[in-house]
């Protein structure tokens, strides 16, 4: 494979996987400490009815409409989970479990009744995403990197993930202090007059944004893994939140890059004929990093 082939076929999906991993790991740190780690799992299930709704309303596989539907469904689910926890005083696990299974079931029903299943919406796509297909056809020579018209033909997922990551990083930096106080001691945060509800909703909304943006590009397995594994591994390696977040980003990046390469070339190195799903291999790598961290922590 030439360097130019790498630019066209491997660099864009790798970059997208990297950005998605970082965007998910960042809010994942706060979900983990708030004992809401499974929220990512919930989100990637509940977006299904939203995607079907977006499909039905526009009558076709329009990406913006399905993204908007997914975001809407995720926000509705997040609100429902908060409501069940606060008003019905349900355990967070119960509130999430009930919400995401119910909404996923609703999505499946809507899919079957509407006939949207016949088109682009299938289970496989939802699980693995379509990372390998996010290639840059127009990169036929190196001048593509400095030609605005050619750069514009990069997969739109790349820009979407970059914008998402930039937004989340800015919010995390800006609200770092209140986020830490809220996550550690909600009662004290309230007594300071911090907008506790707004901040809690903000954390969930940030995770939702990351999950919905990543879901479309890399599928739900990778999204869930990146929300949980890198922060969990980092949590085992340090006793301070700042280093934990930094380390989680390092682990996320390592998972994305190593996993992508292993997915593409690992089987060939082993003498197997075909490559395996990059998303699956990235998620597996993040799991291995977590397992290593757990072993190291135990020692």
């Amino acid at each position: 494979m030439s360097a130019l082939d790498f630019l066209a076929f491997s660099a864009p999906p790798m970059l997208i996987a990297l950005l998605a991993a970082l965007a998910c790991a960042l809010p994942g740190n706060f979900l983990l400490l708030r004992r809401q780690a499974l929220l990512g799992d919930a989100i990637s299930h509940v977006v299904l009815p939203g995607i079907v709704l977006g499909f039905l309303l526009t009558g076709g596989a329009s990406t913006p409409a399905m993204m908007a539907g997914a975001a809407l469904a995720a926000l509705a689910a997040a609100a429902l989970i908060e409501l069940l926890q606060r008003s019905a005083r349900l355990d967070p696990g119960v509130a999430m479990g009930a919400t995401f299974t119910a909404m996923f079931a609703l999505g499946v029903l809507a899919l079957e009744l509407s006939g949207a299943g016949a088109v682009h919406l299938d289970v496989e796509h939802a699980l693995y995403g379509n990372l390998e297909s996010l290639i840059w056809f127009d990169a036929t020579d190196w001048s593509a990197l400095i030609t605005p018209a050619t750069l514009a033909t990069l997969p739109p997922e790349l820009f979407r993930m970059a914008a998402t990551l930039a937004l989340l990083a800015a919010l995390c930096w800006l609200f770092w202090r209140p986020l830490v106080i809220l996550t550690f001691d909600e009662g004290f945060a309230r007594s300071l007059g911090l907008p506790v509800r707004l901040l809690s909703a903000g954390i969930v909304a940030a995770a939702t944004l990351a999950a919905v943006a990543a879901f479309a590009a890399v599928g739900s397995i990778l999204t869930i893994a990146m929300l949980i594994c890198p922060p969990a591994a980092a949590r085992l390696c340090t006793h301070r939140l700042g280093p934990q977040v930094a380390l989680s980003l390092v682990f996320a990046a390592a998972s994305a890059l190593i996993g992508y390469v292993l997915g593409g070339y690992g089987p060939l190195w082993l003498g197997l004929p075909a490559s395996v799903s990059a998303a699956g291999m990235i998620a597996t790598t993040s799991g291995l990093i977590l397992a290593t961290a757990a072993l190291w922590h135990k020692r």
């Binding site: 400490l33 202090r177 209140p178 830490v180 106080i181 996550t183 550690f184 001691d185 004290f188 300071l192 911090l194 949590r235 340090t238 006793h239 301070r240 939140l241 934990q244």
Partner: peptide, 14 residues
Amino acid sequence: FPVRVIDVVVQGLY
């Protein structure tokens, strides 16, 4: 929670 003693006290200066 991953904070040090001094970090908790500094929260009082928020």
